[in-house]
Design a protein around this nucleic acid. Structure first.
Lengths: 342, 342
DNA sequence: CTGTTAGCGCGTTCAG
DNA sequence: CTGAACGCGCTAACAG
């Protein structure tokens, strides 16, 4: 059934270990033997059993990707870029989705390790301290790269300064004359329990820079899995002090919000400006093209995968932390407050 | 480093095989021993090495997903549904993307098998005979489910009648008074070399039903990877006999097309009607909400995964072929031809 | 009920 | 340059 190293050894009348050496490019095999072995392997349709390789602690050319979800374009872009890079390197990807659940994340890490992956990339892990600790512990066994998080130089990391870019987005709104700006945050905010590098922090920073008082009543927390956008929209628009602009933590959410708003008879941006985050590919195709902040998702994902491969080669490199820049993209979903009826 | 079955055996002073039995729920272990073993495993942080399990030909609780691409929402929906189902069953997913390349597909199958997956699902494989043959061969070793393809009762399959639903979409256009209808087909059409179950076949069928002559000059073949939508749009709109409606094989493409059309100054649907296929979630949020055909992507993906798990349980079941129904969804991107300037 | 032995496929010692 | 033997972690058959 399965053709093994032994089959091909028998086929050409040598010992299995000779075959093994030939396949692995050992110098202690005559070139003619090697060719003979390779030919036989080819003709018999031999394919190395990765299980046994893994059992021996050798490379499996398998990488693990842990991601929070698979129903948002930004997460998908990252996975896409990572998978593509691994594939280009001749490697295979094991994908694990965790829904940001602590137990799922912990289990995923163990699981991947027990599958002898050559390394793993953790995409926007949630902020659980247990997960962070486990990652740091496991990083001694296998290469680990994390996206979104700050371990202070312990882990290889790739990140974006959400604080800075979120601030930039809100700056844009304020420059447009808005002062009552609602914000929708993800109830599971990533990493950094102290909240330094979060979109909310950037929002507050921008307000503070412009001497606008922070009003918690304007901040809405949403769990991405259970978001009822229509209800959220109603909550926001029925505030006594109705905001003139809304900053949604993702384009996905912003798109849904615009849809809900227009369905309810509001006009964007005339009645209310809306900004998103990510610049997912549909952002400029929406009914109202979206003002947002462009994250270089492809570069980020690829960068993470690259870092992993690099560390697989050399385990002794000092940890690196690579930051990516973003860009505010102004489109039709925001307008000057003076221009509006507001 | 790694805690093995032997560590826990030594820890409580029994033989490793006893530990193995306890873990696997063998009846030939005293309940007290089992509890003792389980407790020790827990406390030592034991996690079964899946490599060795695989080497023994046992279940690995790992499933392979082979998919053509990861940058189109429909493909992603399928993967999402499959991964979620496998995860619910306590299993892990190995994802392989092939870009519809023959060698990549063949290699992916071998690769997954050498990783001892418990089964694999092939999403919309391309039509290469070699791949089909290999799938049929491998189906004797491990459970395989295919989406989109017809092996005449040899493989487990899940599919949609593209011919039928594509015809329904074109019927809608014709009922709206269109007679010059362009079609954009995927240059890599899935499976079925004879072209029975393709969107193009449905298009031709509808024309034929309405006594409209088929005009090959109205059919444009696009490779999803290299699509230059603007150029394609220009090609179509500069035809001497300009079509009054365009049927694009996917919502993704239709969205891009609408964007290109409006950018170039054309109005949709006034100047030209556009329909897509799939009803991806953004279809009703586009600048012009999209008339399309809704595929139950989630049910399809889940159904495939379910079938796989089912077959893992019982290898002797006769192959099944499960078809899913679609639904034409009429929105704003199509208008009656008599209503337009024509 | 539990210990012993053998072996899954491969890579890496050691001998020759 | 090549063959023989051992072991990765685990399960299954066979003893006791």
């Amino acid at each position: 059934m399965t053709v093994t190293i032994e089959d091909i050894a028998r086929h050409i009348g040598v010992h299995p270990s000779t075959v093994s050496r030939a396949m692995n490019g050992s110098p202690r095999v005559s070139e003619s033997r090697r060719q003979q072995v390779l030919a036989a392997a080819e003709s018999l349709g031999y394919r190395a059993n990765i299980m046994s390789r893994g059992l021996l602690g050798k490379r499996t050319d398998t990488f693990g990707i842990i991601a929070p979800k698979l129903d948002d374009l930004h997460a998908i872009s990252l996975i896409n870029a990572q998978e593509a890079f691994f594939r280009e390197m001749g490697c295979v990807t094991i994908l694990t989705i965790t829904n940001c659940e602590e137990q799922a994340e912990l289990k995923a890490i163990d699981n991947l390790i027990s599958r002898a992956v050559d390394g793993l990339v953790m995409n926007y892990v949630s902020m659980y301290a247990s997960v962070k600790a486990k990652l740091i512990e496991c990083a001694q066994r296998i290469p680990i790269v994390r996206i979104g998080g700050n371990s202070q130089g312990v882990l290889d990391e790739v990140d974006v300064d959400f604080n800075k870019w979120s601030c930039a987005v809100v700056n844009h709104l304020i420059e447009y004359g808005h002062r009552r700006i609602a914000m929708i945050v993800d109830s599971i905010d990533y990493e950094d329990g102290e909240g330094h590098n979060t979109k909310l922090a950037g929002y507050r920073k921008s307000l503070s820079l412009h001497n606008i008082e922070y009003n918690p009543a304007l901040v809405f927390s949403v769990h991405y899995l259970h978001q009822n956008i229509k209800h959220l929209m109603q909550q926001i628009m029925s505030l006594k002090e109705r905001p003139t602009a809304i900053f949604a933590y993702s384009d996905d959410l912003a798109g849904g919000l615009i849809k809900a708003l227009t369905t309810a008879g509001y006009k964007v941006p005339e009645d209310v400006s809306v900004v998103g985050f990510n610049d997912d590919w549909f952002a400029d195709r929406l009914a109202v093209s979206l003002t947002t902040c462009r994250l270089p998702a492809n570069e980020i994902g690829r960068g993470a995968a690259e870092l992993l491969i690099r560390r697989r080669k050399n385990r002794t490199l000092p940890p690196v932390r690579r930051m990516y820049e973003c860009q505010v993209v102004i489109r039709d979903s925001t307008a000057r407050h003076s221009d509006t009826a507001g």
